[in-house]
Each structure stands twice: as structure tokens, then as C-alpha cells.
């Protein structure tokens, strides 16, 4: 009988050889002394591998590939755009200037920061947000800023709900969704990155406790969690109230905003709590 360690090594070697197309007989012939012990293990492994040999539905796979391709093209297009191209460079330049004014209490900048989508200053507000996002020094501060931007979008959705401007509400809802998704992605990237960094000294897949430790480099997670919990409690409620008095033609998009505010904050909280 082979030693435990030796058998584990030989078993692994044979599994690799089988995966490479070699026959069971060929593997066993290499180890005649332990063939009797090895055979049932390899047969079990072959059966398990065969059972797990599952594949996605071809139609889904084709559709998913197309959608991923579209996402790749969109990402490449965004990269090519200098930055915030839909508003034009002027907005970014003005935003940078107003950002300085905002920091020093400038009246126009403050007005821009409080503007609504139907205001002429609104593009500047969005541009200021993007400048701040770009200047964020870490994933944690970016996530916090994204949460605050989500708060602004919900305020705007509630404001726009009474005006019946479906297109502007739709745009705000899309932005809200995108910010919350980005928070989840930032947290996931942080977790993946930390997992990779810590792969040599702790088992990333084993216990949630070890994963929590690995997130210690995620800055502001306490503050961010508090912020998100606050928004998770208040934003859906605010949208619900807006729904009660909103015109019929915007109710559909408000319901979508409500769904996003409920699941989006929960997803973000789950992601940063990992």
C-alpha cells in the first residue's frame, strides 16, 4: 500500500493525465503496485468529473457573448472619450474652477451644487461630481462619493416626480443604478485584490472571518456602511412618498427607481460588509 502523501501525489498526477486524454489503463500501468488502490479512486473522479460536465445553454451563451461584447465596446468608447464628453470640455473646465470656488464658499458653485436637472447649472453640478470622483484618492473615498451622488440623484428623482418629466427621471434612475453598481464593483475589486494579495498567507475561500480581515485596507468602510444604511432606510421611503402623488405617466419609472433603491443599497451593503 502506498503512503498517504505518495498516493495523493500519484492520484493528482493521474487526474492530470486523464484530463489530458490519457486512458485509465495507461495511468494504472504506470503504477502497477498500487493499481488496485488507485483504480476505484480514479473511477470515482472520472464519474464526478463527468457528472459536473455541464455547459450553458448555447442560446444564452451566444446572447451573453454579444452583451459582453457590447459592454467591452462601451468601456472602450468611454476610455476614448476625453472625459465627460457629453457635456463638453467647457463644463469640466468650469467645474474645476467652480470646485475651487465651492471649497472657498463661492456663490455660483454652491448654486450649481444644489441645481436640479431642469436648471442650466445642472451640467456643471454633474461635472463637479466627476472632477471630485477623479480626484478621489482611494476606492473607499470614491465609493463614499458615489453614495453621496446617489443621494443627489434620489433628491432629483423626487423633485422631478411632480413635474412629470419621464426622460429626466429615467436619466437620473440610470445614474443612480450605475453609482450603486460601481460601489459594488469597487468593493468586489477590493476583495479580489486583497484576496490575491493574501493568498499566500491565508485561505481566502475558507472562512468569512478571514475575508473580513482582508478587507481591513478598505478605507472608511464603517462610515460608508453608515451612509449606505441611512440611504437604504430613507431613499426607498422618499420615492414611495413621491409615487403617491406623482402623475400616472411617471409611476412606472418611479417604481423602477424604487426597486433599484431597495436592491442597490442592499447589494452595496453586502459587498462592503464582506
Amino acid at each position: 500500500m502506498a503512503g498517504h502523501k505518495e498516493l495523493a501525489d500519484i492520484l493528482n498526477e493521474c487526474l492530470d493525465r486523464l484530463a489530458g486524454g490519457e486512458s485509465l489503463r495507461g495511468c494504472l500501468a504506470s503504477y502497477p503496485k498500487i493499481a488496485e488502490e488507485l483504480r476505484p479512486l480514479l473511477e470515482t473522479a472520472i464519474a464526478a468529473r463527468k457528472t459536473i460536465d455541464i455547459e450553458p445553454d448555447p442560446q444564452f451563451k451566444a446572447r451573453a457573448r454579444y452583451e459582453i461584447g457590447a459592454a467591452v465596446r462601451e468601456a472602450a468608447a468611454q476610455k476614448r472619450r476625453p472625459f465627460f464628453s457629453w457635456q463638453g470640455r467647457w463644463a469640466v473646465a468650469v467645474a474645476s474652477l467652480l470646485l475651487v470656488l465651492l471649497m472657498t464658499g463661492g456663490g455660483v458653485a454652491v448654486a450649481a451644487s444644489k441645481s436640479m436637472p431642469d436648471s442650466g447649472l445642472y451640467p456643471v453640478k454633474l461635472a463637479i461630481e466627476q472632477v471630485l470622483l477623479r480626484l478621489s484618492p482611494s476606492a473607499g473615498t470614491q465609493a463614499e462619493l458615489l453614495a453621496r451622488m446617489a443621494d443627489s440623484r434620489v433628491t432629483e428623482i423626487v423633485y422631478l416626480a411632480q413635474s412629470g418629466n419621464t426622460a429626466q427621471i429615467e436619466t437620473a434612475v440610470l445614474r443612480l443604478d450605475s453609482y450603486l453598481t460601481r460601489i459594488v464593483s469597487l468593493a468586489a475589486a477590493q476583495t479580489a485584490d486583497n484576496g490575491a494579495l493574501s493568498a499566500t498567507d491565508q485561505p481566502p475561500l475558507e472562512a468569512d472571518a478571514s475575508r473580513k480581515d482582508s478587507l481591513s485596507v478598505w478605507p472608511l468602510d464603517g462610515e460608508l456602511a453608515q451612509l449606505l444604511e441611512y440611504y437604504a432606510a430613507n431613499h426607498p421611503e422618499a420615492i414611495r412618498r413621491a409615487l403617491e402623488t406623482a402623475p400616472a405617466d411617471v409611476k412606472q419609472v418611479l417604481l423602477r427607481a424604487l426597486a433599484i433603491s431597495v436592491t442597490g443599497y442592499q447589494d452595496a451593503l453586502d459587498a462592503i460588509e464582506r
Binding site: A8, L11, L15, T44, A47, S198, A199, E206
Partner: peptide
């Protein structure tokens, strides 16, 4: 081994014990 943060030896041992357990169940 890299994903699990374990040595290759440890993963081989886990693989072996898992297959033995699967065999018994089978």
C-alpha cells in the same frame, strides 16, 4: 492552491480525502 491560499501538498491531500469520501458515498 493559489486561489485557496494553501500549499499544493495540502490541496492534493484534500483532493485525495475528498475523492475517498465520494467513493464511499458512491
Amino acid at each position: 492552491a493559489q486561489i485557496m491560499g494553501k500549499s499544493q501538498g495540502a490541496v492534493k491531500a484534500l483532493q485525495h480525502s475528498a475523492i475517498v469520501a465520494l467513493r464511499k458515498a458512491r
